[in-house]
Design a protein around this nucleic acid. Structure first.
Lengths: 253, 253
DNA sequence: GCTTGACCTTGACGCTGCGTCAGGGTCGCA
DNA sequence: TGCGACCCTGACGCAGCGTCAAGGTCAAGC
């Protein structure tokens, strides 16, 4: 007769594992000797090895039970099933690897490559870092909601940066971020923005609009982080433009 | 300001996950409104998305914390580390797949292919099923302790089956298994076994011996499952042979 | 007979990343 | 004022054991 540690060592498992199998009913509890120790016969070793063989091949313990008592056909079907699960897990991990590989520090965390390129472009034309980070956070939000639209938006933004006037404005807006609501230079900024908006064909506004809730979120980011944001929006409204993320012309009424 | 479910939906996670991140300190607890509800700003959405991006790429939450505050070099090193872990897990699962694939029902569970072939050979020469199963269980025990020796043992056994006398004996032993200890036919069986042993060169016994503890286990299987085993070993000892799994000639003294 | 060290027993918590009640309070709208 | 949709905390559950904790047992050496 064998003690539990002898049994475990013959089968190449830990004593704890054996007790776990007892607890879950996978391996029947053996007789006890007069002091309460479990005593095993050699058949238990064979049974335990069969359990370990299945468990060691990735079969969940809950299925090991059925597999041990299955006939050929059931066994084949169950094996097929377990293999499907293993394949799915492997695919999942490989997806993880691809995503990890695409993750460098900084911007590319949570942003597609085209957005990273766009942020790099902003930096290269001299937009200060705080402004770039504000842009980054905004695009992180957009990318999370509309990942498949990102290439389109980024092409649009890159195109806008082709205009020297827009580039200048971006650099200057970086400073505006720090202004207080009563800064005397705000009206001039509003004028420049309005002039830029006026140059955009009317139909483009509707076409590029973001979903209302996402736009509201982005507006909130702007209003939260820029002291003069509220004032700036007022000035723009005086000039015929309402909104921010989804800018639209004010209907004259 | 956002409620927890709005935050969660913007970031594409569940409310429960957000609370979990709070509990583990991964995401800081926000302000509460007067009724105790958590209220988030848009920056929390960005932070949560960054967390999800890492977690979704297979980074354990405990490491997400460090990664979010890591500089480029630390980040690169950590990513390398996570990728190593993912590769290891994938290798493990692929090992599982190979083992599952090699697992058909019945004998091949816990036995190498050469042992399965040997059992098939036994069946083909007419050895009855109970005897084959006894052999199978014995070889499962051996294979678990000495997997790399199995090809050697199996070649040895196949070679023994080349002898028509051995084949006859195997078929007959299948019946002996069921005999009681006082069966009058036992001495004749012992004679046949002893004659067979006498034909084996003395040095082969030592060469093929199994480790003592494994041999003891296999002997125990034999003694447990065969009623006349003890008597048979006595008869063999009278004829100059002791042991069973590790049979050896009795020194005349 | 006593000690020592190696085993045995049960019971319970820990790990990962949340899902899923349970049992209550709150908000907003008709 | 009632209803449905949210919010809160607290706690258990999941897989497969690892790892104490607190004790009882056994075999061997003195």
């Amino acid at each position: 007769m064998l003690t539990i540690s002898q049994l475990a060592s013959y089968a190449g498992v830990t004593v704890r594992a054996v007790r776990h199998y007892h607890a879950t009913g996978l391996l029947p509890e053996p007789e006890r000797d007069r002091s309460g120790y479990r005593r095993y016969d050699a058949a238990a070793v064979v049974e335990l090895i069969r359990i370990r063989t299945l468990a060691g091949a990735g079969v969940p313990l809950s299925r090991v039970r059925e597999l041990l008592t299955a006939d050929e056909a059931e066994f084949a079907a169950a094996v097929e099933d377990v293999d499907r699960r293993l394949r799915a897990e492997i695919r999942e991990l490989q997806r993880h690897r691809r995503r990890i590989a695409g993750l460098a520090a900084g911007d590319s965390l949570a942003l597609p490559p085209e957005a990273v390129a766009y942020l790099g472009r902003l930096r290269s034309i001299g937009v200060p870092e705080p402004m770039v980070e504000a842009e980054r956070d905004a695009w992180i939000l957009v990318a999370a909601q509309l990942p498949e639209q990102m290439p389109f938006y980024m092409r649009m933004k890159e195109q806008q940066l082709g205009d020297p006037g827009v580039r200048d404005l971006y650099r200057d807006l970086a400073e505006v971020i720090g202004w207080s609501a009563d800064d005397p230079r705000l009206p001039a900024v509003a004028d420049r923005l309005a002039a830029l908006f006026d140059a955009v064909p009317a139909k483009d506004w509707a076409q590029n609009a973001l979903p209302a809730d996402l736009a509201a979120l982005l507006d909130a980011v702007f209003l939260d982080s820029v002291p003069c944001a509220t004032r700036l929006l007022e000035l723009l409204e005086e000039r015929g433009w309402v909104g921010w993320t989804n800018m639209r012309p004010l209907r004259r009424s």
